[in-house]
Design a protein around this nucleic acid. Structure first.
Lengths: 327, 327
DNA sequence: GAGCCGATTGTTAGCGTTATCACAAAGGAA
DNA sequence: TTCCTTTGTGATAACGCTAACAATCGGCTC
């Protein structure tokens, strides 16, 4: 920087100003400095800058498993939004889902002086961990429920489930069976709540939800059982992979989809549009959730004290796996 | 840090030593300092540290689309490996695949003083971008071909394709049709080369490869055409999604899989094990590639000058979509 | 023409660490 | 005892940048 200043015939301070507040420097001086910067290939040292400003230009993202479609897409959304504001994203993935693990992850990020952290961990047990976060670090959570001491961005799981169930009921099905996700997952709870309320609103019987684990295998196993019950004509699986398992089970049991049984998934994973039959499902806009999370975090960093709760509406995508009730 | 020093009755320098080279401090002094650190909740300031040491404890990863299974898994592998060595990972995703875009991404990372960069971009056009990288920054590339001026970690695409083809030939198929990936992708080229060489090694006819675009749609379209040709009894698709499209096309055309036609994919995406029929495919261990990339980068940072080329062997996973040739 | 103002640029003093060298104490060899 | 190591600790000076204030320079008012 000293070299640049000398070459441009100004002081180091002026170089700094050209880079940070160009409007406070006379155009011709600015041009001379920029020319010198270019010639010398000067790049400001971020470490020195953040040492003196206290700002690092970096945000942290803590996530459970970034190979899953949802977290990966959310991360991507955060990164794209952050790029626009000249922030870089540092990631830490969680090895376990307890308070300790989240605390460690946040600590590691803090040691690198991130300005704020987005936590992507849609589990009840993760929510516990949030209660013991450092108060001086801006934090935003993705996918948690309302009422936390931090801002939250999430997909409206309940609304999505309601849409799926209404769609099935409108096709003439008497009621809808539900294959739910693991109880620890907040998304799973939201989908159960939406499914139940949509059935109750129409005065339909509410069968016990069948607890799955997100895997196609669990969908397949429950699916075999459901296939034996002729009463079952509509199934709402809490995610697409379980729905795929149900499709396979129905096929093996000789029940046609959608003629005999309608199946709806949740997520709209990319391959949902490639299956046979094409899966009717509820699309979650994870990228948008990431963008919202970034916005909330920025507000927090800039001093906002509100704990806003921002929801993204999911969208029902009707394909081939649902149809009118037979008979 | 000053406070910690005072509380422990030592100088700031000794506190620094306790944190960096504990073996150079007498055990009782060390204990006193650590106690003071704990009591005051002291956390060293990384910015100040990297200002003086020139090391930031951060590595950059440049990737094209981290929502895809491959890049996401590679990233995850890098992150896990880096955690063990106390490195944090900063990500930048590419908006386009040209030299400019890669240069920008690397520049943004460099501005944050990352110690090295892993580039995940398995495209020919990305390889161009690599030739104009700054020479003073350690860089490792994932998924490129041999012969670059940087170390490379990749899956042995050719070996994977050879395994897929040999498997099909061993089932009695006369030859194997290939649905290839986009020509710009290095992986696609490797799979074509492996497929061709395996056929030629056995003196089998080599049909023209059918150029797809990784999407299930392209697999479906080519699949419809292949289904009309009774000669076609074995298809090797360059990825699982295209294989899914082929499965769907065969089903619609009334050709049974695997009785009439065998289909092999590539990748082993998580849902490959949930389809009907379960897809025979070639599994790539992306996590291992990520780990290798991290190792190579570490060597580079520590001064290694070699441009090593490290390959991970893919594995054939035989499921239900392949069987003996009919007749 | 003195005095004042705003715009622009410069000077100084850190930000929180660690490298380097200096120093003190303790032990061993002569 | 004296000198020389070795080991542990401290003092000082950077690292590269920006905040805060100081200085300079035109131009303008009266």
């Amino acid at each position: 920087m000293e070299d640049v200043a000398e070459r441009a015939g100004v002081s180091a301070m002026t170089v700094s100003r050209v880079l940070n507040t160009p409007e406070k420097v006379r155009p011709d001086t600015r041009a001379r400095v920029l020319e010198a910067v270019r010639e010398l290939g000067y790049r400001p040292n971020q470490a020195a800058r953040s040492l003196v400003t206290g700002r690092s230009g970096t945000l942290g993202v803590v996530s459970f498993d970034t190979t899953l479609y949802g977290p990966a897409s959310t991360l991507y959304g955060i990164e794209r939004a952050a790029r626009g504001e000249e922030y870089l994203i540092t990631i830490v993935s969680l090895t376990a889902l307890n308070r300790r693990s989240i605390g460690d992850a946040v600590d590691r990020l803090r040691a690198q002086s991130v300005e704020g952290v987005v936590i992507v961990a849609p589990h009840e047990s993760a929510v516990d961990g949030l209660r013991s976060l450092p108060a001086d670090l801006p934090v935003v959570v993705v996918g948690a429920r309302e009422g936390l001491p931090v801002p939250v961005a999430a997909v409206d799981q309940e609304a999505g489930a309601v849409r799926a169930v209404r769609h099935l009921l409108s096709l003439g099905h008497r009621t809808v069976w539900h294959l739910s996700g693991p109880p620890d997952w907040i998304d799973a709870a939201g989908r159960i709540a939406g499914w139940r309320s949509a059935l109750e609103a129409e005065g339909r019987p509410v069968p016990d939800p069948l607890p799955g684990d997100w895997s196609a295998r669990s969908g397949y196993e429950h699916g075999l059982r459901l296939a034996r019950d002729p009463e079952v004509t509509a199934v709402f699986a809490a995610n697409d992979h379980m729905a795929m398992g149900v499709l396979r089970a129905m096929r093996e049991a000789g029940r046609r989809v959608p003629e005999d049984v309608s199946v709806v998934g949740f997520d709209d994973v990319p391959e949902a549009g490639y299956l046979w039959p094409l899966l009717t499902t509820v699309r979650q806009n994870f990228g948008e959730v990431g963008r919202l999370a970034f916005e909330l975090l920025l507000e927090r960093i800039d001093g906002g004290a509100e704990n806003r709760y921002r929801l993204v509406e999911p969208e029902l995508v009707v394909r081939e796996s649902t149809g009118p009730r037979a008979g």
